[in-house]
Structures are given as structure tokens and as C-alpha cells.
């Protein structure tokens, strides 16, 4: 049996306008979720290294739960499970942003913890010995140094989260993969369309890598 496959360039090109409609959703869910995740990460990351157990334990529980369960299960739980609890439907976009926020927040907490703990104790001692309060010492001495070290792992997390949004096609958000699936259902050009979808993800993540590299080069030059 002879089988010949031909990549249908025309089909690939034709799919582009339809697929592009998914990109705003992919970006909105990724970056909206990451922005909230960053705030959660700072809060829970700092709580997780607090001396007091009643701050540390809940933060650690949050981190372990959201790192230790699949993001697909998390978003299904939020979209299908939570409405029973809150007594009303949750729209897919909100569910997607919430899932990215909570999930990336857990990983970013660990990034924040690692960044802060990597700063030499002598820095805190120098700040305190100069008369700065604990919070002044933290925000003007420790945090700026820790943040620079956090940039590469934060970039890493951003890329992971962008790709994670592809799973949210299951709850029907019109993001990139979902758009692709709908298009393929009508044209039966799976190879070409998923190829274009993959290229679009690559375009987003490569642009982000490039921006991060520029920031890193500038930010780390002085340390």
C-alpha cells in the first residue's frame, strides 16, 4: 500500500486568521493569571519563610497542594466543581485565569523563597546595624537583590504557564488550541493546523525569552 502525505501549505495559511483569534485569549489567560500569580507568589513565598508557624504552615499547604496536583485537575475543579460551592456558574475565562494564578502562584512562591534565602545573612545584618528597621532592610536591601536572581526562574514559569493555557481548551475557552480544534473539525487538516498552532506558541515564548534575556543582561550587569 502506498501512502503519500503532502503538507498542504494552502490549508495552513488559510487557518491563520481563524487561529489568531485565539491568541488574545491565550495571552489574557497567561499574563492575567501570571500577574495575580506573581502577587500570590510574593505573599505566600514570604509567608513560607516567616518565623511564625501560623504564617508558615498555611503558606506551605497552599504551595504543596497546587504544585502537587495537575493543573488540568485544578481547572476542571474550578470550572465544574466550584459552581456547586458558590451556587452559580463560573465562566471559562475566569476559571482559566484563576487556575493559572493559583498554579503559577505556588511555583512563584518557591521562586520568591529561594531568591530571598539566597541573599547572604550579612546583608540583613548590615542593614540592621545601620539602624534600618526589619522591613526597611528587607525592601531596600534584600528584595532588590533577590528579585534580580528571581528573573530567570520567573521567566521560566511564565513560559510554562503560557503553555499550560493550552489545556484549557477542555473547558471551552476560545484560546489557541480550542480555535485549532474547531477549525480542524470543519476542514480535517489536523497536521497543518496543529503545526501552525505550535508555531504560534513558539512565537510567543521565543519573544518572551528574548525580552527576558535583555532584562537580565541589563539588571545583572551591576551585581
Amino acid at each position: 500500500m502506498e501512502f503519500q502525505f503532502q503538507f498542504d501549505w494552502q490549508a495552513a495559511i488559510n487557518s491563520i486568521p481563524y487561529l489568531l483569534k485565539g491568541i488574545p485569549y491565550t495571552l489574557l489567560i497567561s499574563f492575567g493569571g501570571l500577574a495575580i500569580g506573581f502577587v500570590l507568589g510574593i505573599i505566600f513565598g514570604l509567608l513560607s519563610i516567616n518565623k511564625k508557624w501560623f504564617f508558615r504552615w498555611p503558606a506551605t499547604a497552599y504551595i504543596e497542594i497546587f504544585r502537587g496536583t495537575p493543573i488540568l485537575v485544578q481547572v476542571l475543579f474550578i470550572f465544574y466543581g466550584l459552581p456547586d460551592l458558590v451556587g452559580g456558574p463560573i465562566d471559562p475565562l475566569t476559571a482559566g485565569i484563576a487556575a493559572i494564578a493559583l498554579n503559577s502562584g505556588a511555583y512563584i512562591s518557591e521562586v520568591v523563597r529561594g531568591g530571598v534565602q539566597s541573599i547572604d545573612k550579612g546583608q540583613t545584618e548590615a542593614g540592621l546595624s545601620l539602624g534600618l528597621s526589619r522591613s526597611q532592610t528587607f525592601w531596600s536591601i534584600i528584595w532588590p537583590q533577590a528579585f534580580r536572581r528571581m528573573i530567570p526562574p520567573l521567566g521560566n514559569q511564565a513560559i510554562v504557564s503560557i503553555k499550560d493555557t493550552s489545556l484549557f481548551s477542555v473547558i471551552g475557552v476560545g484560546e489557541l488550541v480550542r480555535q485549532g480544534q474547531v477549525y480542524i473539525a470543519n476542514t480535517f487538516t489536523a497536521f497543518e493546523v496543529y503545526f501552525v498552532v505550535a508555531l504560534m506558541y513558539l512565537a510567543i515564548t521565543l519573544s518572551l525569552s528574548l525580552v527576558l534575556r535583555l532584562i537580565e543582561r541589563r539588571g545583572l550587569a551591576s551585581v
Binding site: Q123, E125, A126, S129, L130, I141, P144, S222, V223
Partner: peptide, 14 residues
């Protein structure tokens, strides 16, 4: 009121 100088300097690198 008390200044301190450390063995490892502990200057702020940023």
C-alpha cells in the same frame, strides 16, 4: 547610634 564594620564588608552590591 552604633556603627559596625564586618569581616566580609557586607556592602550592598546593588
Amino acid at each position: 547610634e552604633v556603627g559596625m564594620v564586618f569581616q566580609q564588608f557586607n556592602l550592598f552590591p546593588h
